[in-house]
Amino acid sequence: MIAYTFKRLLTLVPTLLAASVLVFLFIHLIPGDPAAILLGDTATPEEILALTRELGLDRPLWQQYVLWFKNVLSGDLGRSLFFDTPVLQVIADGAETSILLALLTMFWIVILGIPIGIVSASYKGTWIDQVTSGFAMLFASIPTFWLGLYLILIFSVGLGWLPSSGFPSVSDEGGWTNMRYLILPSLTLAAPNAALIIRLVRSSMLDVSREDHVRTARSKGLHPARVAIKHVFRNALIAVAAAFGFTFAALISEAVVTETVFSLPGIGRLVVQSILRRDYPVIQGVILIIVVLYMFVNLLVDLAYAWLDPRVSLS
């Protein structure tokens, strides 16, 4: 398993190379000149040209890439064109929000998705199953931005229970109670994904419950709840674990929308704003980190898969 993990980490290198080239090329395909955007409407063509030269944006694309890549290898993601601070610093500023948001969202997905899925499968065909499946279908279909706006309307504007936007750091005044700023965004983000997990847990459990070995388990005289958890859910978990990789990918893209709707100072919003500002180094840095993260999550999913299913061998 250690050898496998190491091998998988090695494949990270070519993937990152390919991803960085693609990202670099696509960003430069976007029309618009960063120097012009930075200097604003009143800038003269001479000033723009001077700044372009200063930023090194007049050089051929491949030279820019090689330069950037050399710096990345030495751990330097460059400086933000907009903030004029190191890209790593800019990303670190948004990381707290995004990491806490992601953790809280994953918490909701697991806490809601798995038990409701199990209940739904155990009471298949009854009103309980119909209600849970109905809600799961509904939440899987609602767009994130729409749900976010309605949650704000109900819980912030209407009831005044929770804040509607922003997120002060947990190290600021208020400490961990500031997490309440993340409740609505994380629920918004969790809803469609938890709904998918509910449906997946339900359908895989129903598939597994038809298998012969479940009848064997019942023939031992075990309590139905034990059969449902130890023999049906445990085997259904194999399919569910694989889905968590996709869920993570969905979270990244949906976080962009959610952070924008709730004005959260996270990495998702940073990407959107950096694209609007043509802040190339920040975009490249963030995407590079997302690629690494995504590959790590997939590695974890594969390891979990092998751990859950002894028939899968890592080699």
Binding site: D212, H213, H231, N235, D309
Partner: peptide, 9 residues
């Protein structure tokens, strides 16, 4: 069915 009557995990 001995092939499917045991829990694979």
């Amino acid at each position: 069915e001995p092939m499917t009557s045991l829990n694979p995990v």
